[in-house]
Design a protein around this nucleic acid. Sequence first.
DNA 1: TCTCCGCCTTGATCGAGATCAAGCAAAGAA
DNA 2: TTCTTTGCTTGATCTCGATCAAGGCGGAGA
Lengths: 250, 250
Amino acid sequence: MPRTMSAPRLTQQDCSNCPIRHSAVCARCEADELERLESVKYYRSYKAGQQIAWAGEPLDFVGSVVEGVATLTQTMEDGRRQMVGLLLPSDFLGRPNRAKATYDVVATTDLVLCCFRQKPFQELLLDTPHISQRLLEMTLDELDAAREWMILLGRKTAREKIASLLSIIARRDASLRENPAEQSVVFDLPLTREAMADYLGLTLETVSRQISALRRDKVIVLEGKRHVTVPDFDLLMSETGDDSDGGIFG
Amino acid sequence: MPRTMSAPRLTQQDCSNCPIRHSAVCARCEADELERLESVKYYRSYKAGQQIAWAGEPLDFVGSVVEGVATLTQTMEDGRRQMVGLLLPSDFLGRPNRAKATYDVVATTDLVLCCFRQKPFQELLLDTPHISQRLLEMTLDELDAAREWMILLGRKTAREKIASLLSIIARRDASLRENPAEQSVVFDLPLTREAMADYLGLTLETVSRQISALRRDKVIVLEGKRHVTVPDFDLLMSETGDDSDGGIFG
DNA sequence: TCTCCGCCTTGATCGAGATCAAGCAAAGAA
DNA sequence: TTCTTTGCTTGATCTCGATCAAGGCGGAGA
């Protein structure tokens, strides 16, 4: 399939603001591929709390998170809810070749997405094998994360669930500040207690109680409801029930 | 990259015994690709109960299930166990470009795998874009299944969990016999009560009690411990907690 | 035929987390 | 200012599934 673009070539540098480059698509792109990427990508912004897609309703784009946090949630007929995806910056949203959303998608903070319409993205995938290979790797990583999440849901105690979620957010939070000597980590929770409960398969009351318990036991320090300091990351990790080897960024 | 094979071409028919054709790899293969597939694939057999891989230990092949059932299981330090994958015929095992197993893999029935060593499979992926595209689709399907599983683990009652597992196995069991008039379905459980408990995030006692309860309520009929008849599949589905639209094979 | 062992069932009791309920604090809106 | 709303905390009580315990059953091997 011929490439019809004829604009001047873009350098890697020119594409540095393309979040897809860091996630789904152009880690190994050639200049002419980058140029094509630039020509079909566009941005969408959402306010905190805004719903991006409804389960079963049309969703005609895919994309990746540039900034902010979004959640995928499934609701049962009687109202029970379970979060099944937590999208942080660089995570991918949507499924190629699927016109409808499978889950409710909600922005839990102000959010910026870098998007591609389904059709041009399809063509990109067909023309550019390494993009689908990259997408395969990302999806396999997401599957591993889903399996970790299944262990959390199936076998961990409420306290272990909270500690695990805090360590997951701490690990990935961009504003994370770490003092190597003290192993102290600081971040803001991007989720309400209720959203945390939906993530963990708990009620919001249990989430609140267990956070209070971790604070009482000095595993975490809270300023306000959302700002968390972890004075000793190893201590937090020891509460997760996970194998304890590997450093903060292991 | 040149193809160096020069043996006589194989027809689609010749590859009909290749389970990969029905799963990961050659749904859209050309004859010369099939020939290459044939040249690198091989079979492995396991007895019921035999362990195929150990978490963290080397696993230098990928493959797909031809016959039988295998499970992926994660064990926590204190012995708590959670199943994170149930592999039925045509499912894919292993991760391209990863030399070590992430989970314990166990054959729960006699099992036949159609395998590829990592290195030739890598090359196959690089040479044959539609194979990695097919693998991407399969992985996305697996991710959807993992997310359904998360809802089960996080929000369903013990009774709903059992009903869900029975319907999942019934749906996919090859020996399934269905009478369209009566909606009656018959199959054998490929898992022990303990393995079912590991799947569902329950104890084996609770599994046993809930199966007894479903039998008492005539949702299922048991002959022996493993042979299940579902007299009314819609009735079973109504016990799962899932949205009830869509037929048996919906 | 007996015995053993793996797999399963059932009963009694316990406890972690759910549910029901009350109230606090901060941020808007009137 | 006062009222309302949203998000959160804490207390009292309940319940579902875990835990502890005792057998049953059926197939394999002596």
